[in-house]
Amino acid sequence: MSTLELENLGKKFGAVVALEPLSLRISDGELICLLGPSGSGKSTLLRIIGGFEMPTGGKVLIDGADVARTPPEKRPTAMVFQSHALWSHMTVEGNIGFGLKLRGLKKAEIAAKVDAALRLVGLADYGKRHPAQLSGGQRQRVAIARCLVLEPKILLMDEPFASLDQHLRDRLREEVRQIQKKLGITTVFVTHGQDEALSIADRIVVMSMGRIEQVGTPAEIYTYPQTPFVAGFIGDMNMLKAVVTSGAARVGDVQLDAPVPDGEALFAVRPEDVTLTPSLNGEGVRVRRIVNYGPVLKIEAEMPDGTLWKVQTLKDVPVTEGACYHPIVSRHIVFREDRAVHRVDPV
C-alpha cells in the first residue's frame, strides 16, 4: 500500500515558525500519533500533509512521489476534521457519496460503496438522515466513512474525537484502530491526549514548539524518554534536580546513581518505580495525601526540604497519611543539557 516520507519539512507563518524543518518516515499501514501540547505544530504538520497549508520548504513524499505542491483535491490523502465538517444540506449518503460522484462513478456503484462504508462504521441504517439528526459521535463516524469510501492512500485525523465525552472517545478510538488495522491504511492521527496516543499508536511522534522531540513506540516513549520534555509530558514523572559528585547524586536521603561527570543533572523517576518502606527515624518523606485509583494508590509525599514526590503503589501496600517513609527508586533516567545521558533499570 502506501508509505509517507517527510523531508526537511518546515513552515513559517510570517515571522512565526510553526514547524522547524523535520524529517519522518511512516511505513505502510502504520498508525502514527502526533502528540504534543497546544501550539506545538501538530495541526500544521497534518494540514501540510493534507495539502491545506503550503510548506515553506521540504518534501512530502507519498509512495516516493513529492506532493508538497499538489492541492488537496488532487492528493491521495483524506482528512477527518475536528468538528462540523459535514455538509448539512446533504444526507449522510450524500455526504459520503459526494467524492465518488465527483469521480464520475455510476449511481449503482456509488450506492454500493456508500453502503459498505456505512456498514464499516456501524451506521448501516442512517443513510437517509441529515447530519443535524445525528449525535456527535455518529457525525464523526460519517466523516470517517466519507474519507474511507475514497480509498485514500493516507488517512489524516486532526483530534477527531476532541469534542466527544471520554467514554465515547475511548470507544470510537478502538473502532478506528480496528478499522485501520483491517484496511491496513497508513494513518496520521493528531491528539493532545497521551492516553489516546499510548493506546492506539504504532509509533508516537512527540512534538514541542514546532520540533520533533522523540519518535518511538508507546513503550519506548514511556519507558525511555530521550528529553526532559518527553519525560515530563507523557505520564506522571518526578523531575528532580540534583548535583552529581563522583558518580552519584543525593536527593534527601535517596541516592541516585549517575556515572557522568560531576555537575548539575536532572533525574526523572516514574511514580510506580518508587517503593516506600517505613522510616523509623523520621527521615525520608512524609506522606501528605493518598488518592485511591481503583487497583492503585497515588501518593503525594514531601521531603523536609520541600521536594515533592509522586509515588504509585499497589493497593495492598500499607501506607498511612502523615507517616514517614524511605523512598526506594528502582529505575531512573539522568538528563543533562536536555538529553538523556544515563539510565538505570531494575536488576
Binding site: E73, H84, W87, S88, H89, M90, F98, L102, R146, L150
Partner: peptide, 28 residues
C-alpha cells in the same frame, strides 16, 4: 465553516464545484 469547505476540497471538489454544491445550498 472553513472545515466544510476544506473537506470538499479534500474529496476532490474544485472551486466552482464548491461554490455550486457546497456554498450555495448552505446559503439558500
Amino acid at each position: 465553516s472553513d472545515a466544510s469547505i476544506e473537506a470538499a476540497r479534500d474529496v476532490g471538489a474544485g472551486r466552482l464545484r464548491i461554490l455550486v454544491s457546497i456554498i450555495t445550498p448552505e446559503i439558500t
